[in-house]
Amino acid sequence: MELEVEKIRDQQKETWNKFSPGWKKWDELTMDFLKPMGDGIIKLLDLKKHDIVLDVAAGSGEPGLTIASRLTEGKVISSDLSEGMLEIAAENAKKRGIINFETKVCDVCELPFLDNTFDAISCRFGFMFFPDMLLAIKEMTRVLKPGGKIATAVWNIPEKNFWVTAIMSTINKNIELPTPPPGAPGMFRCSKAGFMSDLFSQAGLKNISENEITGKLNCKTTDVYWDLMNDVAAPVVAALSKADDEIKDKIKTEVYSLVNQKYPNNSVIIDCSALVIYGEK
C-alpha cells in the first residue's frame, strides 16, 4: 500500500476512534437520520434468509444490524477501521439480541476474506472516506460471490444537504481553511451524478443503477443541531479547533441565525439527499 494511502487510512482510524463516544451519545438520532438510506440499500440487495453479508464501514452497526435481524439462517460480518465504532455496534447487537452478527476490524482496501465469500455487501456512507475508492470497490467485488449484489449510499450535492453546508459554509466564511488536495476524503467527494456508477463499472460490476433517496435530520432545536455537529462531525471540530473563542462565538451566532431563519419555531427538521448505487458481480 502506498505511503499516502496508509497515512490517510491511519488518520481515518484515529479520527473515528476519537469520535466514537460522540456517535454513541447520538446513536438514536443519527440512526433515525440515516435509516432511509439503509432501507434503500436493503431493498436493493433483496436478501435471502441464508445469505452471508458483509457490511463495510459499518460504524455503530447499521444497516448491518437490521440485515442480520432478517437473516434467519444467514449472518452479517460488520467491518470498520475503528475498534471504537465496532464496539458500539457489538453493544447494539447485544441490546437487540442479535446473535448472527460479527465484527471485524479491517481496511476495505485489504479485506481479510477469501474470494467469492459473500452473497451481498452493503456500505452506507463509507466511500467518501476511502483513500483509494477504486481499490476499495475492487476488493469488495473480489470477495463477492458470482451473482452477488452490492449497494452503497453516498451524499448527494451540497445544495441538497443544508445540514452540512449550514455549519461548514459559515466556518469557511470566518476561517481560512487549507484547500484539500483533489480526491481527498470529504463529504461530497462522490456526489457527482454517475461518479459511483463509473467506479462500479471499472470494478467489473454489471446491472448498475443509481437513484436518489431523501431523509430528514430531526434535531427539533438549533441547540441540538449545534451540539450534534460538534460531537460527530470531524471536519467541524477540526476547523473550530483553529479558531479563538471570539471567532467560535461569531460562527455559532451565525449558524444559529442561518438555521433559525430556514427552520423557525424549534422545528429544525432538515432535509438531506443521498445517492444509492447498486451493482452485481
Rank of each mutant, 00 (worst) to 15 (best):
Q12W: 01
D80S: 07
E28N: 11
S78K: 03
T117S: 15
C109P: 00
L54W: 10
M37V: 05
I99R: 08
N116V: 02
K75C: 05
D51A: 10
A57Y: 08
K95S: 14
A93S: 11
G40N: 11
R70Y: 00
I52S: 11
K49A: 14
E28Y: 06
T117M: 03
S69F: 03
I77V: 15
D46L: 00
N116G: 02
F33E: 06
M85D: 05
T117A: 03
L111C: 10
E102C: 01
V108T: 15
L71I: 05
T15F: 01
L71F: 07
D32G: 01
I98A: 01
L111Q: 04
S122F: 08
K75T: 01
K35C: 03
K75N: 05
D32M: 06
P112R: 06
W16K: 03
L65W: 06
I99Y: 04
F113W: 02
I99E: 13
P112C: 04
V108S: 13
P112Q: 11
L29S: 10
E14C: 02
K25S: 09
P63G: 06
T30F: 13
E110D: 15
F19C: 02
G61F: 10
I42N: 00
V56E: 06
E62R: 12
G64I: 05
W23N: 04
W26D: 06
G84E: 02
P112F: 08
G61A: 08
K25I: 02
G64Q: 03
D51V: 00
A58L: 07
P21K: 12
F101Q: 03
R70V: 01
H50D: 14
G97D: 07
L114A: 14
I121P: 09
S122M: 09
D10S: 12
W16D: 03
D39I: 04
S69Y: 03
W23V: 06
D39N: 11
L47G: 04
A68H: 02
A93N: 03
T117L: 01
D39E: 15
V108C: 14
A57L: 12
E14S: 13
P36T: 04
W26C: 08
D119R: 00
